[in-house]
Design a protein around this nucleic acid. Structure first.
Lengths: 353, 353
DNA sequence: TTGTACGCGTTATCAC
DNA sequence: GTGATAACGCGTACAA
């Protein structure tokens, strides 16, 4: 069996090696060619290993000639580190999470870590995905989805670093990086009230989204503090359509007496704006103001120029990467939560001073 | 060393096993507990293996009690299949590719294959990424980026299945799934001309993008066939800004005599529309028509309601998955190219019959 | 049907 | 500094 290796290597005149289709060069092959031991080859790829220059040169020559590359899978098996992290995302279509994924990938790849991607199509397959994440021996996981307590338990049993992205779990200490949703909404409300808006409507996200709950509560509470009580809160689901629907209901209800609509995310705010303009011929922001939350790319398009809270995605992602890798290296660290403030992005969708 | 295993397992009263933090249960542990051989455990996880019911029950009981899950890394090492595919994406921010990634992930995960994600930040690190893809022993690769011939060679040397997504390489046979760019543009041009448009402007994508070249050429050629020669073609870069800039230049050049602008993608078309409306107070489509290409989500927002060619992303992704997996199972298959037609999505951004 | 023994390709440990 | 040798956790030919 191990002799089947012999005929698969052929020496050609320019001292390069031609490989049989699909044959994989191993450190053993390199060692044989360089006339050294296999462990010597291995050491040459280990940073800070003690290898003489002469040895290293001989090995690297053979490596170059044969196009050898270490097998990361075999390495993972022995080192018990895969340099793989799982990233679990729900609502991938939201225009916001692709940006997060991009930044996460950037941060991890800077540390030689690669992303194994999982997206949730139905919430029911979370358990299935967790199994697969475990099977691939990832070093850690970033989750932008809601996990059940039992599911979190499974990570803790394995002592597998888990960091939530913009999710917090009540009555439970977990690592998480978040944008301060409530504070962001308060900024928006302050600006709207300062500019003289009197009547407000709110369109929330799905009720099972804690982020949405926090945003909506933040807006409601600040409005209340400033003397605006009983502000109507409509239930949306983060989608463009639900933004449109919310706009229709609010306009109907207020019969033109509405000053501002506060949406729990940008996509709904955009749906809102389109409907206010198209279906009710309202001028934004002269007749009515609209604000959102997230800071997605279309928000800055001049067709919308949305006033919103931009989440510091870059910083948040970098923090998430830090936290995962930190816990990979120090398994005994306690959960930590990092909260970032969003930046007010002042567009022309709201009449603000 | 191998005895250090013993103290790490503790039996508790309900016959469940409590594991030491971070301890990994192996098939050997399960075997010991079930009183069978390790290979028996292995067989229980192999579909279609010959295992008696009694044996399977005993094993599965131990599996459940210990929370055993096969180590995919170790399995990959011996089977020489990682069930991992690399996905290499450039311009991830384009609003179009996240959707592609989502569909690819869907398709692969239906086949028990997982995605290792790579995004290009600078074009220069393609070589680096290819090395990493190889090191992780992926079973195949989907690439939505431009590779140099030498880079393609490296895949062929390894006989590693490679499928391009919306990229074709000239003078070279590679597997690829594409949308028929030229045909799509011809559909758009036909519709515009039939509706009486007389003067046209084109905004292309980056010149190193073959897709853009094909789209632009498709539009130019069809216009020429229909008697419209010397249509001005402006160089864009797929960005919103370049769409805006293109609109300004075209309007300036035509002094209000422009009937339609054909953009090489939706994002530029949207930039175009915003600028035509805001800066030139033009009515769309009454004063001027705008068409795009891709079918991104914002294109259907009523603020734009863009007339465009929607790429059949689902079908294309499914085809890419098929092609990769097909070549994984049949390494000797020759490269194949599948071309899909785009669907005309008739919005109100163009005055069309 | 089941168990034994080996190998996948690497790193770690230990003598030398 | 270098080379044997033993893991890592699993799949599988082979013998029983």
């Amino acid at each position: 069996m191990s002799q089947s290796r012999m005929p698969s290597l052929e020496l050609v005149q320019d001292s390069k090696v031609l490989l049989q289709k699909g044959y994989r060069v191993t450190s053993y092959d390199v060692a044989k060619r360089a006339g050294v031991s296999q462990s010597a080859v291995s050491r040459c790829f280990k940073p800070g290993a003690s290898v003489s220059k002469k040895m290293r040169d001989r090995v690297m020559k053979a490596v170059a000639e044969m196009g050898y590359q270490p097998n990361a899978i075999a390495r993972s098996l022995i080192t018990r580190r895969s340099n793989l992290v799982g990233v679990i995302l729900s609502d991938f279509t939201s225009l916001h999470y692709p940006e997060v994924l991009f930044e996460l990938n950037h941060g991890f790849s800077n540390r030689g870590v690669h992303i194994l991607l999982f997206t949730l199509h139905r919430e029911r397959d979370v358990d299935e995905i967790i199994e697969q994440v475990f099977q691939y021996q990832v070093d850690g996981v970033v989750v932008a989805a809601t996990l059940l307590p039992e599911q979190i338990d499974r990570f803790e049993e394995r002592n597998l670093p888990l960091v939530f992205f913009n999710r917090t779990i009540q009555d439970r200490s977990v690592s998480a990086v978040c944008c301060d949703q409530a504070a962001g909404e308060r900024l928006l409300v302050n600006a709207l009230v300062n500019a003289g808006h009197k009547t407000f409507g709110v369109i929330s996200g799905p009720e099972d989204s804690l982020v949405s709950v926090q945003r909506t509560a933040g807006a409601r509470d600040r409005l209340s503090e400033l003397g605006f009580d009983n502000v109507p809160i409509l239930q949306g689901d983060y989608s463009y359509d639900s933004g449109q629907q919310g706009a229709r209901e609010l306009v109907d209800r207020f019969k033109g007496q509405l000053d501002a609509i506060i949406c729990a995310n940008d996509v709904m705010a955009i749906g809102c704006m389109d409907t206010l303009r198209k279906e009710f011929s309202l001028e934004i922001p002269d007749d009515i103001s609209v604000v959102g939350f997230d800071g997605i790319t279309p928000a800055i398009w001049s067709g919308y120029d949305l006033t919103t809270i931009r989440q510091p995605v870059k910083q948040m992602s970098e923090a998430a990467v830090d936290m995962v890798m930190d816990r990979v290296d120090n398994p005994d660290k306690v959960p930590e939560m990092r909260v970032f403030s969003g930046n007010m992005q002042n567009g022309s969708s709201a009449r603000i001073l």
